[in-house]
Write a protein that binds this DNA or RNA. Structure first.
Length: 242
DNA sequence: CCAGACGTTGTT
DNA sequence: GTCTGG
DNA sequence: CCAGACGTTGTT
DNA sequence: GTCTGG
């Protein structure tokens, strides 16, 4: 998936880590569980801006600017598959011209076991900030829309996200600036998507199924508390290296 | 040719 | 706006 | 795990 | 009978 993320750090820590300021500081809010189907904002660094901007989650292509709500109702663009961004009518323009860094410090993946599902919270060692590779369009001067790129799951994430076996493209720190360089050609972007996934170890553990329920306030610190795994083969809490 | 798609993977 | 499918 | 599919396509 | 999807 990657239909839910977290960004729990302070404005100051985010600005220091990514060495850029918030363009619209008042828009920033921490999120412990930001649901892609909700209305909470992502925070992104669009190409050639050098600042951090709020962004709706779910890229609205330019051809749909007349009716963004109608488009959202018909098409799910929370994620964009790396394999098809250059052939997709919806994503190709952004793939070539409008890539972004999507700031986060965690995300949620569903794990399936005996016809049940349990979400796993996934974060980097030390709960460090990181950036997803993303695509965007500019809705106006201060608001964007964006999608998180997904790639085939690696050895860790195919155990966790064991149904779809996909994972969001978490960029290694060394590639952050590369991803938003304006003059990359298709081959270079494709190479970054192939080799850009972070080598930093992940820590993953199961959390409450409450994040699947409607009408429950899940965007609270307690949502990050580990719970008992339903799958005995996948322990929780340990550092998983790969 | 023209109408219609254009997207991805979630749970109860 | 542009591509795909019927 | 268990239920359900298991297939291909131009028509009114 | 065996694979896929939920």
């Amino acid at each position: 998936m990657c239909y839910a993320t977290s960004l729990t750090k302070s404005k100051k820590e985010i600005e220091e880590t990514f060495k850029r300021d918030f363009a619209v500081p008042l828009e920033y809010q921490k999120h412990y569980h930001l649901n892609g189907f909700g209305s909470g904002m992502l925070h992104i660094i669009p190409m050639e801006t050098d600042r951090i901007y709020p962004s709706n989650w779910g890229l609205i292509p330019e051809y749909a600017f007349e009716d963004p709500a109608g488009f959202k109702a018909d098409y799910n663009t929370l994620n964009a598959r790396s394999e098809s961004i250059f052939s997709s009518r919806t994503y190709k323009k952004s793939a070539a011209e409008s890539r972004c860094l999507i700031l986060a410090d965690g995300f949620y993946e569903p794990h399936h076991y005996k016809s049940k599902s349990q979400p796993y919270y996934c974060k980097l060692e030390g709960h460090k900030l990181f950036a997803f590779a993303g695509l965007y369009t500019a809705l106006d001067d201060e608001l964007y829309s964006a999608s998180i790129i997904t790639v085939p799951a690696n050895e860790l994430f195919e155990q966790i996200h064991n149904k779809k076996k996909r994972m969001p493209l978490v960029l290694d720190d060394q590639f952050l600036n590369n991803w938003i360089e304006p003059d990359l050609n298709q081959k270079q972007v494709e190479e970054l998507m192939r080799v850009g996934f972070t080598t930093t170890p992940f820590e993953t553990y199961p959390v409450s199924n409450a994040i699947y329920q409607r009408g429950v306030e899940t965007d609270v610190p307690e949502i990050l508390k580990p719970v008992e795994p339903i799958d005995p083969a996948l322990g929780g809490g340990e550092l998983t290296l790969f």
